[in-house]
């Protein structure tokens, strides 16, 4: 009973964060800001869902289940890399940015510069 409550709590928290991440995709002002949604808000969402899965299968089903830890590990390795590649592609294509430019020039492509 308590186990099921804890599991449902984690599922709800996870679903909420996944939803907020998706709202971020719609609401945030430009391409670069939108990237923050999928790299972060969803990490905790998926984390909570995986925790729910671990508790459910370990405590209420057949026994210790830890392969969810792998999903977390792979997520932590792939999310920043894909975000990095998306930003670079955006910079390369001079996707419009509504962000303040860096204070000094350090040889990075200037997102504000016209094509």
């Amino acid at each position: 009973m308590i186990g099921e409550l804890v599991v449902s709590l984690f599922i709800l928290v996870g679903a909420t964060f996944a939803l907020i991440g998706s709202i971020g995709l719609v609401r945030l002002p430009d391409f670069y800001t939108r990237l923050h949604g999928p790299t972060k808000a969803t990490t905790l969402g998926v984390g909570a869902l995986l925790l729910a899965s671990v508790i459910y299968f370990s405590a209420l089903r057949e026994g210790l289940s830890l392969h969810e830890a792998l999903i977390t590990l792979f997520l932590f390795m792939t999310a920043p890399v894909s975000a990095h590649l998306l930003v670079r592609a955006g910079l390369h294509h001079r996707v419009e940015s509504r962000s303040r430019a860096p204070a000094e020039d350090h040889g990075h492509p200037d997102p504000e510069a016209p094509i």
Partner: peptide
């Protein structure tokens, strides 16, 4: 940097 508060490392 990409995984922590409000920042994504870009280039």
């Amino acid at each position: 940097i990409s995984l922590t508060p409000g920042t994504v490392s870009s280039e």
